[in-house]
Simulated scan of single mutants.
Amino acid sequence: MTIHKEGTASIAIAAIFFAVANLISFYFLSFSSPVISSLIFIVTLGLFLFIISFFRIPKRQYTFNENAIIAPCDGKVVVIEEVQADEYFPDRRIQVSIFMSPLNVHVNRNPVTGEVVHSKYHKGKYLVAWHPKSSTENERHTVVYRKGNKEVLTKQIAGALAKRIVNYVQPGQQVNQNDEMGFIKFGSRVDLLLPLDAKIKVNIGDKPKGGVTVIAEW
């Protein structure tokens, strides 16, 4: 396991908070209120370890398949439905939405190998990530990949806690399946908009792993 570069500042701040809180606790509470001092240590240690865990990159055997759309993130499948595209595409698409809790790995990966033909950031609200309108009203970053004559759209969506979306790809860039596409901090969601003839390989409630699970084939 390694730690993602996006976590450097957050982990440093958490480490300073942990150290300062426990130094103050030790000097002022350890003798008069040892139970409270111990509780502060346990709580702050738990928060520190949570921050580290949030930015983890676990070692995995990634799935590479030119005929498949691979999960762009970890999480839980909460939506599989036909929708009218609200951006880039003029037609209807199959939407697959993956909700990422704060406990999930939050690295986002390219679902396919191909050319980035669209990449756009949108300001927006911070509705809870499973809210139906979060896909079109929340802060989000949309990327469209083209592979041959086929295209797939991914949408990084901020949630109630996630207020920083990071995206690394640019229009015209050639990218590889499972390379890093971006990162969303502290709970969020990623939508995929797929062609109507895509063969969906997951069900509502499934828990895909980013870079591993096949979401669909085309």
Rank of each mutant, 00 (worst) to 15 (best):
Q173C: 03
P195E: 05
H106G: 04
H141F: 11
S30C: 10
E137V: 08
H4W: 04
N203E: 15
S188L: 10
T142L: 03
K5Q: 14
Q156L: 09
L45H: 11
L127R: 12
G182I: 05
N108H: 15
R189A: 04
P90R: 14
A160I: 12
E81N: 13
I184M: 05
E137S: 12
E87V: 12
P132A: 09
V79P: 03
H122Q: 06
E6I: 09
Q61F: 11
N104P: 05
M181V: 00
A198C: 07
I94E: 02
A129Y: 06
R140H: 00
V78C: 11
R140A: 01
P34M: 13
F99N: 04
K59V: 13
I157M: 01
K147H: 14
L193P: 01
W130G: 02
V77P: 01
V112H: 01
T142P: 00
G75D: 03
D91I: 00
F48R: 07
Q84T: 10
I11M: 07
I40G: 03
H106Y: 07
V43N: 01
R189L: 04
K123L: 09
F89Y: 10
V144N: 01
K207C: 10
A9R: 15
S32Q: 13
L29C: 05
E82K: 12
A216M: 01
E81P: 06
P102G: 08
E81T: 13
S53R: 11
F18V: 10
Q61L: 12
I24N: 10
A68M: 08
G159M: 07
A19C: 15
P102W: 01
E82S: 09
S188F: 04
